[in-house]
Structure formats: structure tokens, C-alpha cells
Simulated assay, not measured.
Amino acid sequence: MATRDERSGPEAVRITTAAPSRGSDIAARQKRYLFSMAIRTACFVGAVAVGPGWLRWVLIAGAVVLPYVAVVLASSTPKPRSEMPLRGTDWLGREIGPTR
């Protein structure tokens, strides 16, 4: 009998490896971006509140670098999961018989 590899046709798609919906993907990106910007704001406020010293420069450096990190994190897309391989089958019959 012919196996899946020998037949022509599209590869089966597993729903467990499907990408999240566009709306949930955008919501997750917005949350990551807002969290990063909240940390950046805290760095600016902390730099003003701390006063002169080395900690002020660390906080300023964090406030300068965080926008780049926030954009990179917000732009990243989730990779599909592939830890569950499909089992091959040699059965080529119909799953639903003809209707009358």
C-alpha cells in the first residue's frame, strides 16, 4: 500500500502547532512592548530620584537601550511547535462513506 510520502497532496496540519490568532498575537506583542516601556519610564524616574553617582548612569543607559530591546521583542514572532510528530499511516480508505 502507498504511504503518505508516496502520495501527492498537502502535508497534514496539526492544530497543536498552529500559530496563535492574529488578535492574540498582537495583544501579546503590545503587552511585551508596554512592559518594556514601563521599565524604561522607571529607569528615567529612578535616574532623576537617585541623584549623582554610578547608579544614575546605569539607569540612564537602561533607559536608552530599552526602546531597541522593546521593539525587537515586540517584532518577534512565535515559532511553531513541532515536538509532536505525526504518525504515518498506510490506510487510504475514506473516513466518511457516501451519503444516500
Rank of each mutant, 00 (worst) to 15 (best):
A38H: 12
R4C: 05
K31T: 13
P67H: 00
R14G: 03
A2G: 07
G53Y: 10
E83L: 07
M37L: 03
E95N: 08
E6M: 02
G51H: 11
I96E: 13
R4W: 06
A28V: 08
M1I: 09
Y33M: 00
G88I: 02
Q30A: 15
G9N: 01
G23D: 07
G88E: 12
I60R: 04
I26V: 13
A61P: 00
L34Q: 08
G93S: 01
S76A: 14
A2M: 13
Q30S: 15
K31I: 13
A28S: 14
S75H: 04
G97H: 06
A18S: 11
G97E: 07
A63V: 01
E6S: 02
D90N: 15
S36H: 05
G88Q: 06
P80Y: 01
G46A: 02
A70K: 00
D5T: 06
G51D: 14
I39P: 00
C43I: 05
R22S: 13
P52K: 12
T89E: 08
T41M: 12
L86P: 09
S82E: 10
L92W: 01
R32V: 04
L55M: 14
V72T: 05
E95M: 05
P20R: 10
W54Y: 10
R32C: 02
L73H: 05
K79P: 07
T41F: 14
V71K: 00
A19T: 07
A2D: 06
P78R: 15
A27C: 03
M37N: 02
K31F: 13
V48C: 08
I39D: 02
M1V: 11
G97F: 06
T89L: 03
T41V: 10
R22P: 09
R81Q: 10
R81S: 13
V72D: 06
P78C: 12
A38P: 06
